[in-house]
Structures are given as C-alpha cells and as structure tokens.
Write a protein that binds this DNA or RNA. Structure first.
Lengths: 202, 202
DNA sequence: GTCTATACACCGATAGAC
DNA sequence: GTCTATCGGTGTATAGAC
C-alpha cells in the first residue's frame, strides 16, 4: 500500500540545492566568483533568481557552500589516498588526474584559483575557508612527496613543502594558461614536473 | 621672447593620461580587471568619472593602454637584458627581482595573472594582447634558461620551454598565494626553483 | 519552493555646459 | 579637460502572492 512514493517531493527538492551548488561550481571555475550572478544560475536551471535566494539568501552563503563542496571533494580524495596502499607515485598521479579533470570541459580552472583572484572583494567569512582549503591541499601533496622521497620513489633536493608548492602552483598555472592559449600547455609541464621529481642536486 | 612657457599645460595634461594608466595598473593588480571601476580611478585622482572617459572612452581602450604599458615594461627589461653581458644567472635574477617588485606594496600580483582570471568577460581585442605578452615573457625566460644550460650555469633535464613554464608559473602562483596567506611564501619557492636549476636527471 | 514585482546600489557610457 | 547630470543595464537582495 502506497509504500514507494512516501516522500517523492522531499527527495527531489533536496537535489535542487545540490543542483545549484553544482552549476555554481562550474560557473565559479569558468567565470570567477564575482563574475557569475544569480541570473546565470537561474538561467541554467530554469528557475528565477528569487528561488535561488530561497536556498542561499546571500551570495556569501552560496560561496560558503561551494567551499564546503570543495572541502568534501578534497576529503574524499585525500583521506582515501592517505591510508591506501598505493605507491607515492600513484597517489600523486591520482591527485594530478583529479585536479586536471577540472580541464575536461573547456575553460575551467581550479575553483580555488578563481576564489584567490577575487580575494579583494571576497566576503570576510570566505577568506578563512579558502586559506583552509589551500593549506590542506598543499599539506597532502607535501606528505606524498616526502613519503616518496623516503622510500626512494622520488629524488628531489630541498624542502618537500617548497617542492609541493612548485608542483601545485605549476599545475594550477598550467590550467590558467591553457584557458588563455588553448594549445596543450599541460602535458609539457606535467612531463617536466615528473622529471624534476627524478632529479638530484649536483 | 616668452619662450619658456610655450606649452605649460600640454606637458602637464600629457601626464594625466599616464597618471590614469599608473593608478589603473595598480588597481588591476590589487582588484582585478572586472573588479575595478572608473569610480575607483576618479576617487584616487580626484577627478570625475566623465574626465576618465575623456581620456579612455571605453574601458576596453584603457585595457589596451594597460597592455601597452606592460609591453613597454617587458621590452625595457627583456631587450636590455638580452644583449647585455650579464651571466644567464644574473639575467634570471634581475627578471625575478623585477617580477617580485610587484609584491612590494601589499596585495599585488602580476597584472597578466589578473587579466587571465577575467578572460571570460574580457573584451575581444584584449585577448590577443594578453596572449602576446604571455608568450614574450615565457620566450625570454626560456632563452635565458637554455643559454645558461649551454654554458654550464644551469643543469636541468628536459625542455627549456617547459622548465621556463614551471619557473614563471610558480613565481606568479607564489604571488597569488602570498596575497591569500600573507606569510613569506615567496622565499621558499624561490630557493627551491634555484635548486632545481642546479639538478640533473638520474 | 517558486513565482512576480520591486528596491537600491553600482557600473559603463554619453550629452552638454564651462 | 573637467565638470554636472543623466541614461540604460545589471548586480544583490527583499516582500509578498501562490
């Protein structure tokens, strides 16, 4: 007796909030935080601006939700990889593939890069969230590099934290340049980063 | 007679255009292209928005003038260094110091990074100008790295163009991260880049 | 939850006086 | 060259009907 359709609407409505986050995340990566509007979201979803404001009264609320989604994305990736039995090389490769999946559709960059660019106009509560995400990402890469160096998979001089910075900054920069110059910017950079992790100081 | 004050106003007014470019370049680096307005410029200079429009009717005109100023900045630096008798190491050091001078005042990044971030909303004529500036910068660094490798100053594996990309992308990324996290992000990255230019593949 | 309608601020841009 | 005044467009955000 009517057991299946007990909550048909609630399940659907719950998704609407996620739909907004999903399309907003794409808009963040393609247009930037200040350059996408509630109108863009409403056009993409086929509902009005006012409806978006029902789910996220202020744009700051939406921004925080986006940071939460990115944090979830990070944790799903980092926590799984940290305690896995993958080699350090594989851990790094999986991270790189995940980061570069941003570039699947054209003209997308890392969402953290987009937030960084608009930091001067960013709501106050978003800055600490952004700092937190940046740091966790770099800590993860730094740990993987150090682990790989200790077990002989990687060979690089100096501080692992600094090497991780160069690695992450180059990758995200390559995404940005790829959006400007179109051509295949990422492969050469990736190959060079790979070689640098097999180098030793003279 | 009356030879001295023949054109007292023209000389001064010529500077007003340069003043606008100068303050706009700073605003570009601190706020981003889409995030600074004619109102910001007029407030900083103490004249009205309409006066700014007299010198640069459309914002696109101002944007092109900014690209021209950056190009001039590049040529003054690159052409002088190219045909100088500096070592490749010194050429690279001078370039780095010039690029990092952007970070003198707080919260400034490379102006090309700012333009890249807003590429989705950039006027059509600015994209080729931006591409041109990016390419010339990378070509210069690439040539210096290759020159240094051939005369034994640098030791790095792989393609000089790819190594130059990593070098420039890391530096500009460090400027961006420095604006977010405040602390001294640049020194460790710079030191690590230096070590990577002394490494050899195993 | 979604809608219509609206308020208010800011933006780029123009007209015309001085 | 600079000003006052204003236009049209867009942005975030809110009120209230359904």
């Amino acid at each position: 007796m009517t057991p299946d359709i007990s909550q048909p609407k609630q399940v659907r409505k719950k998704n609407r909030k996620q739909e907004i986050i999903q399309i907003s995340l794409e808009l963040l990566q393609t247009q930037g935080y200040e350059n996408f509007s509630y109108q863009d979201i409403s056009s993409a979803l086929g509902i009005t601006k006012a409806s978006i404001h029902y789910h996220f009264p202020k744009k700051e609320d939406l921004g925080l939700a986006l940071c939460g989604a990115i944090k979830q994305w990070h944790e799903d990736l980092f926590l799984n990889l940290r305690d896995s039995d993958h080699s350090a090389k594989d851990k790094l490769r999986i991270f790189v593939e995940a980061l570069l999946s941003y570039a699947e559709g054209p003209y997308k960059v890392c969402p953290l890069s987009s937030l960084q660019a608009d930091v001067a106009k960013l709501p106050d509560t978003l800055l600490p969230a952004l700092q937190d995400l940046d740091r966790h990402e770099l800590d993860f890469v730094s740990q993987v590099l150090e682990e790989g160096r200790q077990n002989g998979e990687f060979h690089f001089p100096g501080d692992a934290q600094a090497q991780a910075s160069i690695f992450v900054l180059s990758l995200k920069g390559a995404l940005q340049y790829s959006r400007i110059h179109g051509g295949e910017w990422i492969s050469p950079v990736l190959q060079q980063l790979d070689q640098l992790l097999q180098a030793s100081s003279t």
